[in-house]
Design a protein around this nucleic acid. Structure first.
Lengths: 218, 218
DNA sequence: ATACTCTCGGGATATTTTCCCTGTTTTTTC
DNA sequence: GAAAAAACAGGGAAAATATCCCGAGAGTAT
């Protein structure tokens, strides 16, 4: 183990990890690079290799990105996590940071940005993509946004919200989150109350408006 | 211009393109690699560089993947396009092929698969990821385009569909249509069956994809 | 220490949906 | 023009789901 920065890459797509690697290998400050394709594996590898930083995507099969962050933090409260996501919606940024991430950049970033963010965070700092940081600053000021409602959701509620809005049944969401059906049911009820909607379809629409659903490919 | 295969990469994320490149550069059959971040640019670069094959993602800003395929084909009917997508749903595969793509693989594919597919298609063949091809084969009977499914709805069912997808509860839809609650319920069931969805949220997503709901204006 | 909020779920009770079935009206089809 | 096939509307019973109310434990802030 040298003074270089060891990185754990977490993304479910091998080709994307290859891209990360290419970016990171441009710098001689980066040491070993480990790879995980999902959150569960990431937790395991983190304990095993003790990397200096975790670079990860949010959308993954299994426990998903947010829960992955929480679990990593639970294992090691000093764990340094940089989220490198496809999403440039503020909701995700704030959620990720609340979950414990030290940084957030998007996949549009250039290699230098990734390396810079990694170094900065590994050194104990934090890094949020300037453009997003700007938006955040303005967003905090103006509190009339419709997404205020979404911000009111607790972390767990947000998890449930994402799944239900995507078309998951309550039962399947419970399965995915390893929760009792009743718990998800209850979360669903309070989500609807907080968002002021009556049906799951309305939840979907709201989520869709905020880009929480990748309604990609037209 | 040698006998190597020149490739045009189309993906809006630079890091993903870097991954593609890493994969492709493993083979000495690959020649020049050009890059585009969206469909419009792709069309332009295609005309300019005349690559042997286009490798592209489906979810992109601007005109999107499907329209990009159509435009490329319009420019050059012999244009060889390999879709390399995050989506493993059959709908996307069939739509891509209908649009004119010669191949389809997912981002879970290993490097060898990508290179093999590229070579095969460049040589005039086609390539669909075996697993997806299998599923397609079994799905031929029920293979319908999404919009085909919507067309299958009877007029009355379509009425109900629109309301439910917009967030109306069954009860309110019944009220609006001056029908018994039970009737709307039953329509709902057959709609779900015809569309092949399990929840109202999925109906909403489907409707949203087809522009039946204008969710962009809020 | 106290008071939050978040999380998780049980039990009893609505509510909703499904499945199956009976009719009536259109619309096709031969 | 008659027969067949959809579409349309709903009832009843049973199954599935959701809600409401409750309490317990964990964590955090005052």
């Amino acid at each position: 183990m040298s003074d270089k920065i060891d990185v754990l890459l977490v993304d479910d797509h091998a080709v994307v990890r290859a891209g990360y690697k290419t970016y990171l290998s441009l710098s001689n400050k980066i040491g070993d690079i480990y790879e995980a394709d999902k959150g569960e594996t990431a937790c395991q590898l983190y304990t095993q290799y003790q990397p200096n930083i975790v670079v990860m995507d949010l959308s993954m099969p299994g426990i998903g990105g947010f829960e992955s962050i929480r679990r990593l933090i639970a294992r090691d409260p000093n764990c340094k996590i940089l989220v490198f996501s496809i999403h440039n919606e503020l909701v995700y940024v704030t959620r990720a940071i609340k979950a414990g991430a030290k940084g957030y950049i998007t996949k549009n970033s250039v290699p230098e940005t990734l390396v810079a963010a990694v170094c900065q965070i590994a050194a104990g700092g934090s890094y949020v993509e300037p453009e997003l940081a700007q938006q955040l600053a303005f967003n905090i000021a103006s509190e009339k946004d419709e997404s205020e409602q979404i911000k009111q959701l607790s972390p767990r509620e947000f998890d449930v919200f994402c799944l239900l809005a995507r078309g998951y049944t309550t039962r399947k969401a419970a399965e995915k989150l390893c929760l009792s059906y009743k718990t998800v049911c209850n979360h669903g009820t309070s989500i609807k109350e907080k968002l002021g909607v009556k049906s799951v379809a309305e939840m979907t629409l709201l989520a869709s408006r905020h880009g929480i659903i990748d309604n990609l490919a037209h």
